[in-house]
Design a binder for these strands. Structure first.
Lengths: 230, 230
DNA sequence: AAAGATTCATACTGGTCGGTATGTTGATGG
DNA sequence: CCATCAACATACCGACCAGTATGAATCTTT
């Protein structure tokens, strides 16, 4: 019998992925040092190059197997929820509240990788694009669903709103890196929450104007208390 | 008399700054190669190190003397305008329309630098932070001004809205890099324009839920067509 | 248990990059 | 016209880093 298996290729691979993810999160992909990954993981270079053909291949694997699930887990609650606006607001609140100083300082790995790698590597670009597409499609589906259930205004263009929401989140997290505090992120998120509130369907509203007008007139506004801070 | 001055230190410095900016825009700061900058500028390494003490100092100078004016020029129209919402919408339209494929592919230099350098270099972080602070303060001032002129809803929290707007712009430009087309940026910008429209003060509206300001109506307004799309 | 493949370990290589040492040329003041 | 300094130019150095060659240890299969 063997007390502990001396060879655990799957575990080695997983350790490598996680340490590579952290190093990439701190330094970006190009500045990520293989030696640093090897040191933090306790794996040798021979093992690394047995599991991954190159640094680039390792990076691709991190995107597919770490970043992608990470992002998907974040917005899943919104897609699964009965009321996508309530769910989205909750996610936003969680996002700012649970975020450690470390996460504030280093930002969102997904956003970081897009910014760094999309212009210089097609493999990264394509993989990151599909993650973004899926994320957006999930929000679009949630909003369409919300429109059918009459919890989201019918005149909202779901594609545009989804892109706008994702952009504001990633932009807020990204820009927060330039500040010491999380003030910017929190402030931006309050703006986002206000925007999300404005997407709620109002009780007596006639639906479906969509591409005709920006809505806004006639309807008399303002969900109010649930969101009013102060 | 001299036909052409053989020594033009100011011009040499400026050329260096511009070429460094372009190289940094393409590759990021850390991956920017001094040799590439020297080749594209036709300047030698000796000249570079005469004008700048190190690559980092060169980077700082690019931030202060190229990136900062670049950003300030972008939002100045909003601050100077009579109606900041109209101006902001115009700027957004310009931003997407005039943007070349190159700019789509490589994103916003300011955002790129924050994402890349803020976590790893305090000098960059501080300089970029002040640019962001100024940008945000400019929008806040414009919105407060707009609130006094009754073109912006009185219940809007200017700080939050400004952060949110900036985040959505930079996020949209950043994420657009992962797509081949500018579709994502345009879509996100349509979402932003819709949001900006929602900030307009409405004629007969009793204002101020937010900080409980009464705000007498009577002021009329609302341009409308100037901005309505489709 | 032998053979063969998988999994890992070590030492080394070629290349790139930021930075420096040192030399040369042009401008400038006396 | 000479001295001095600013403004360049060239050659070189050490560090780091991705990748490889080679071999050893372990597991699997028969």
């Amino acid at each position: 019998m063997k007390a502990v298996a001396k060879r655990q290729p799957d575990r080695t691979r997983q350790t490598l992925l996680e340490c590579a993810f952290e190093e990439m999160h701190r330094s970006g992909f190009r500045a990520a040092s293989l030696d640093a990954i090897l040191e933090s993981s306790g794996v040798t270079k021979g093992a690394l190059y047995h599991h991954f053909g190159s640094k680039t291949q390792l990076g691709y694997a991190v995107v597919e197997e770490v970043v992608r699930p990470w992002i998907e887990a974040a917005w899943r609650p919104v897609v699964d929820a009965d009321n996508c606006i309530d769910a989205a607001i909750t996610v936003c609140r969680e996002l700012t509240r649970t975020r450690s100083a470390h996460a504030i300082e280093y930002g969102c790995p997904f956003n970081n990788l897009i910014n760094e790698m999309s212009p210089v590597d097609e493999g990264f670009r394509k993989r990151l694009q599909t993650i973004l597409d899926d994320w957006r499609a999930g929000i679009v589906a949630a909003m369409r669903n919300g429109q059918e259930r009459r919890v989201v205004r019918a005149d909202v263009a779901a594609e545009d709103a989804a892109a706008f929401i994702i952009a504001s989140i990633e932009g807020g997290v990204g820009l927060a890196k330039s500040k010491r505090s999380r003030e910017f992120l929190e402030s931006s998120m309050r703006g986002l929450v206000d925007y999300l509130e404005s997407l709620r369907a109002r009780p007596g509203q006639a639906a479906a104007v969509r591409h005709a007008r920006p809505a806004q007139d006639g309807a008399v506004l303002a969900p109010t208390f649930k969101t009013s801070r102060s």
